[in-house]
Design a protein around this nucleic acid. Structure first.
Lengths: 160, 160
DNA sequence: CCTCAGCAATTGATTGCTCAGTAATTGAGA
DNA sequence: TCTCAATTACTGAGCAATCAATTGCTGAGG
């Protein structure tokens, strides 16, 4: 057997490996899930899933605003990505920029009344999809395990 | 308490809910993981993670080519997305388009020798990241559970 | 046999991100 | 006190996806 044929077999073996399949499954499930939520939110609330993720963080602690820097890190966007995302959200009246007291480089973001109202409607749509495709398909013991595992993965990524 | 304040509290409660946190974790873990792999592959093999996913599928069954349609469905891309992706891959000599016998609408794609060689190097880089951030952080019992759960989710999404 | 609804791939226009580079601001060390 | 490296947000250019519209092809029903 010539070297190229051997390489083909090796490639086939690797492409079919457990690791590749399993990891592919994670990416596929996450992608499809996010896509469903995105289209549901766009249809029912005129916002993207990314905007929803921003609103979550702004509504979580109603008293304290959050810096763009922190939002970018949390959403895994670059600072320029966040700048433009907040531009759009500010443009549609969902959030407001306020100067950060004590650090004039930084910009804080807070949700508007309208933003919170949209968030509540969006959360309902979100819950419906999540309930159906993330919670319902799993035995309840598995659900807890799954989120625990995801937490471990996230921690490993953060610590490096 | 006026209605707006009540709405704020409600928003804070929802934004802090179990469902929102857990689902956020899935998205975050998947995004960060994919990002790591993408940058590793770009650095070491000059391909994107998406291209790698194409190569996986083409190398898996070396004898049979795969249609663009099937690739698009599998990678959750639109058909126009796949057209341009294959354009780029063909441009850098990773794959080849061949007319589908028996259906002249359809285009089949197959990997080139170069594509398979790149795939083998890429798979090594991929394995390193996956091993470290997906396998290592988990107890081995949890790993099996996790992939099983992901499979269930994927199935629920597919059946709808 | 012909028609016509439906599917595959492609293309132009648009969107939402990244990267690279800039300007303002900060804080730590000489 | 001054300097300078690091940090924040922003901007222009570019890239990879989407959507919408088009073309070519297929197969089922009249």
């Amino acid at each position: 057997m010539n070297p190229v044929n051997r390489e083909n077999d090796e490639a086939a073996r690797v492409a079919d490996s457990r690791l590749v399949h399993d990891f592919g499954l994670l990416i596929k499930a996450a992608t499809r899930l996010e896509q469903r939520i995105d289209t549901a939110l766009r249809k029912e609330c005129e916002i993207s899933h990314t905007m929803f993720e921003v609103l979550i963080r702004l509504c979580r602690h109603p008293d304290e605003e959050i810096s763009q820097r922190r939002l970018a890190d949390d959403l895994t966007l670059t600072s320029s990505g966040i700048t433009r995302l907040i531009d759009r959200m500010e443009g549609s009246g969902l959030v407001r920029r306020v100067p950060a007291p004590g650090d004039r480089r930084s910009v804080l973001v807070e949700s508007t009344d309208h933003g919170r109202a949209v968030f509540l409607r969006a959360a309902a749509a979100h819950a419906q999809v999540v309930e159906r495709y993330f919670v319902a398909p799993l035995a309840s013991a598995d659900y807890g395990r799954l989120t625990h595992s995801l937490g471990e993965i996230e921690k490993a990524l953060r610590d490096s």
